[in-house]
């Protein structure tokens, strides 16, 4: 067995929280550049330029890209040959969040009870999705999720007879209703299948795929392509001011499901599309 110190995990998580919030990923900057060339609306081009400028100011001045530095969501792949020494994995991650959000001047956006709504003061607890995988490595991915885009997400239990068309119609309806609210240009994660909660998980995990990637299954890649084209014909545009660039990517993932079911989930992500990973 390979031993990893809990404090090593805490240090790595602290850095992930800060880096994800300060540094816009290259794939997003590349997508902005490519959409600026295609965009028909001068206002939309101006907005995309402002987002590029914002990324530059964040990086140089060490400011978060957005004041909503999100719910700290983690996808963790723990090798079955790894043991953690000096603490538990959830405690180590939460301590990293506590330190990262404090030392990185990130906003604390979590309330301890959804109805009483008192701020926990340190952005914990984190949301941790843990998967045990073969090997002796520990891979931690952070996806800080802002409230504005998360609020525009939805799970729907479709009927198997609704098929691909039912899924496509559902996603288009959700994105259309979301309009300017989730800070377009958005990234759309779609989860099809599984159970009620698995569909939502699959949709969120789909957001971690590279923006330019295609689902290896042709029938799912075809849905991604059709959805991206139709969403970018809606006219919503950057910030909803009107334009061609409404979504940077649509990422669809599927999971086996019950003979009676066709769950579908849409997880919308804002243009900052923050995520970073580390392998220990």
């Amino acid at each position: 067995m390979r031993e990893i110190e809990a404090k090593t995990i805490t240090g790595a998580v602290k850095k992930l929280c800060i880096d994800a919030n300060y540094y816009l990923n290259d794939e997003v900057l590349e997508a902005f550049r490519s959409y600026k060339e295609k965009e028909e609306s001068p206002v939309a081009v101006d907005i995309l330029s402002q987002l590029e400028e914002n990324a530059r100011i964040s990086q140089e001045g060490q400011f978060p890209l957005c004041q909503d530095t999100g719910f700290a969501v983690f996808f963790v792949e723990l090798g079955s040959e790894v043991t953690i020494k000096g603490g538990t994995l959830p405690d180590a991650i939460n301590e990293g969040v506590r330190q990262g959000y404090s030392e990185g001047y990130l906003r604390k956006s979590i309330v301890s009870d959804p109805l009483e709504r008192k701020n926990t003061g340190d952005n914990t607890p984190a949301i941790i999705h843990l998967e045990i995988v073969p090997g002796d490595k520990l891979k931690i991915t952070i996806l800080p999720k802002g409230g504005g885009s998360e609020n525009m997400s939805e799970v729907r239990m479709l009927k198997p007879a609704d098929g691909a068309k039912g899924v496509i119609d559902f996603v288009l309806e959700r994105v259309s209703k979301a309009g300017p609210n989730p800070c377009p240009p958005i990234v759309v994660g779609v989860g099809i299948g599984g159970t009620f909660e698995t569909a939502a998980f699959v949709a969120k995990k789909a957001l971690l795929r590279p923006l330019k990637s295609k689902n290896p299954k042709p029938h799912l890649a075809a849905i991604e392509e059709e959805l991206l084209e139709k969403i970018n014909q809606m006219g919503i545009g950057p910030q909803g001011f009107g334009g061609r660039c409404t979504a940077l990517a649509v990422l669809v993932e599927a999971f086996p499901c019950h003979i009676a079911s066709l769950p579908a989930a849409v997880n919308i992500e804002c243009h900052s599309h923050r995520h970073k990973e580390v392998v220990l």
């Binding site: 400028e53 400011f63 978060p64 890209l65 957005c66 243009h271």
Partner: peptide, 26 residues
Amino acid sequence: VGGAAALIAKSVKNAEVVAYPELGPE
């Protein structure tokens, strides 16, 4: 512009809490 938060902050010259400091960011 949503998400242009570092850019927008450049135009802020001063900020003070006038009520409800216990709400933190709110």
